[in-house]
Write a protein that binds this DNA or RNA. Structure first.
Lengths: 209, 209
DNA sequence: CTTGAATTTGACTAACTAGTCAACTATAGT
DNA sequence: ACTATAGTTGACTAGTTAGTCAAATTCAAG
């Protein structure tokens, strides 16, 4: 009953785009409404507050964008190290695409928000952290599998996994700061060294091709 | 002639503390003035704008805090790998201290600001980027030296250096996000693997002790 | 002790902020 | 065609924001 509308979806999309680019506190409700082509009255029909919208937008973004991309890289049946290789490659290409389309390279939306710290509502920060920790699980799984299958020789798997993840997020963040994909280049080779990958497992894509 | 005052210095200090914790856009001029015990009229006697203050505060922070710390770790005469080890160790301890004193772990102030992207004035972002690039130079120097002295075997020194720096900044940022020093633990060992350090050079501190 | 430049003050503005609301409109299901 | 319901609107508030300014105060130097 009543009329139907996609205003809610437009608001979520606009919120993500603007917040990703400019940050939580730099973006105003008015700006989000303008970008979504929605009047402020409507905004508060759908969301309780700016924080509420942002929280929902992050979750929606994870479900609709991040998750599909990450799951296609870390798919069942793909050899563990190749999962990482695929993911790094897909993120590299994605960041280039974002830069081409929007003018600036944006890095990871969740990391961007999570790092803001105090000065953004806890519920928003938690939503971002939740997404990051879900992302990290794919790394943990792949590296555990690699160890179990004897593809990597590193002893302290947990410490190495931490490092791999820090390296990846650090490179993404630096790419954003420099507005250049440069820091993302060749991460996979560095990760292989961190994991002490055995020579035969070093180039899974070529090996399985 | 005229009276003397340390209001300018108090403002710089307050700006840094608040911005580090809460971010550029979350901090108001009024809040900075309150924290510094300075009235707004005085604020604009010393600084043209909030952006101007923040820019100056970053530079002052680098000169007064970051630079001394980094230079004492990367001091002349210290073996290259030990410079890194010292620096990681000193940052680990420093972050713990910050957390103990201020309640939250804050990571790198410049990284924090540089990552904000659009929505902070270019002059501010540039000031943060400048500090980061100065910091990075110490890494480049140390790793180049290590290579020249045959302490590391890695072939692509440039790519490895990028990775070491990304790993470090990524770990600092993650420590902030998680409000825990955990990601900073044992970075040095991971860096040794990235650089393919020769066994004899692996623990310079013990070796030279 | 006088001078005058540096500093301090608080009241001011104009623009912006998140959020409210009651009236209005379109339409899906009957 | 009716009508309940979901969606839309624009004008509204109350608080906050960065930045201004003229007058008052302080004190180093002559």
């Amino acid at each position: 009953m009543g009329r139907v509308s996609d205003a809610r979806e437009r608001l979520l999309k606009a919120a993500n785009e603007l917040t990703w680019k400019q940050g939580y506190n730099a973006v105003t409700v008015d700006a989000i409404c303008d970008a979504a082509g929605v009047k402020k009255g409507s905004f508060y029909h759908y969301f309780e507050s700016k924080a509420d919208l942002t929280k929902e937008a992050l979750e929606a973004w994870w479900q609709a964008n991040s998750r599909p991309i990450i799951e296609s890289s870390f798919a069942e049946g793909v050899p563990p190290l190749e999962r990482l290789q695929r993911y790094f490659d897909s993120m590299y290409r994605r960041q280039l695409e974002i830069k081409r389309e929007g003018g600036t390279l944006l890095g990871c939306a969740f990391f961007r928000l999570a790092i803001e710290g105090e000065g953004v509502e806890p519920e928003v920060r938690e939503a971002a952290q939740r997404a990051l920790s879900r992302k990290r699980k794919y790394f943990v799984q792949a590296i555990d599998d690699a160890k179990r299958e004897g593809l990597i020789k590193v002893d302290d798997v947990e410490a190495a996994t931490q490092a791999v993840y820090s390296l990846f997020e650090g490179a993404m963040a630096r790419a954003r700061i420099q507005d250049s994909p440069e820091p993302l280049k060749g991460i996979y080779e560095q990760v292989l060294r961190l994991l002490e990958a055995v020579p035969e497992a070093r180039d899974p894509v070529r090996r399985t091709a």
